[in-house]
């Protein structure tokens, strides 16, 4: 596996980019819902990122990231043709996909990219896939063309109303669920508040709801428990038992506080990086 970046595309300039990486063995094995762990340089940390797409024949995987801290900022400095030091995967349990009828896939922000891979899986399994995507405004939406290409329904929500419904994805989701009692499953990937809100909306409808947790991880193979979360009163490891869990059972408060535990160090690292890179 060369880990060479074959293609780089700025989806939202300076904020979100897409990389197509040469990683044939991972491409061969990866299924929707899987993630990889990257390391950018020899003093780097291990960063988990959900696989947004694969092309087993070309031997490539696609990842999409939001520049939020030092590691993603470093990743953003890499150009086409350059090598990512470590790419490890596919990790996590793949999404449970079977032919089951109508599936609504909800994606928010960078989560839309990860949702895309799962929506594609459900489509290939013969399900009727309704994609609901949301962002603050039109310019921040991702993967709409790709999703529109295979989803019979693509519903959009933006905070400012620049595209689709003005408001949240949950408004659109509630509407859609009210119109159609035959939805078998809802999949939600995005910021924690969005996934929590989706689970809240679907609960009265009694629809199975899957959320994908972006917990802090170290090894990503079940060795450390950094990513542990409370699902229905039981401790589970997001890296090997997940990352997808029953959204009606996840303790989102605990997830939120565990996600924030390195805020100070993350800021310290990022400030240092900015000073070193002169911005």
């Amino acid at each position: 596996m060369s880990n060479k970046i074959l293609q780089k595309k700025a989806l939202i300039p300076g904020q979100t980019s897409l990389l197509v990486i040469d990683a044939p063995q991972i491409a061969k094995k990866a299924k929707p819902g899987n993630f990889v762990i990257l390391r950018i340089h020899d003093k780097g940390e291990r960063v988990p990122l959900t696989i947004a797409d694969t092309d087993p024949e070309a031997g490539t995987i696609t990842i999409v990231y939001l520049v939020v801290g030092k590691s993603s900022a470093l990743l953003e400095t890499l150009k086409e043709g350059e090598i990512i030091l470590d790419v490890c995967g596919p990790l996590g349990k793949p999404t449970h996909i079977e032919k089951c009828g109508t599936v609504i896939c909800v994606g928010g922000g960078t989560g839309i990219a990860a949702m895309h891979h799962i929506a594609k899986g459900h489509h290939k399994a013969g399900n009727h896939v309704v994609a609901i995507v949301g962002a603050r405004s039109k310019d921040l939406l991702l993967f709409c063309d790709e999703l529109g290409g295979f989803c019979p329904e693509l519903l959009i929500a933006t905070d400012d109303g620049s595209s689709g419904h003005k408001g949240f994805v949950t408004d659109v989701l509630r509407d859609r669920l009210e119109k159609d009692k035959d939805v078998t499953e809802v999949v939600a990937i995005g910021p924690v508040p969005m996934m929590e809100a989706v689970a809240k909306v679907t609960k009265p409808f009694g629809v199975r709801t899957v959320v994908s947790l972006n917990s802090i991880m170290v090894d990503g193979v079940g060795m450390c428990g950094a990513c542990r979360c409370n699902v229905g009163g039981e401790t589970r490891f997001a890296c090997v038992d997940g990352p997808e869990f029953d959204g009606h059972k996840v303790d989102f408060n605990e997830l939120r506080m565990r996600l924030a535990q390195y805020k100070n160090q993350e800021n310290e690292s990022m400030d240092l990086f900015r000073r070193e890179h002169g911005n």
Binding site: E45, K70, V218, C224, G225, Q265, S269, L272
Partner: peptide, 21 residues
């Protein structure tokens, strides 16, 4: 395992020179 992996494998004792906190 987490504590020691961060510090040994991730060299977190040398943060922020190393990135693992």
């Amino acid at each position: 395992n987490e504590y020691l992996t961060r510090i040994n494998l991730g060299r977190a004792y040398d943060f922020p020179n190393y990135d693992t906190p």
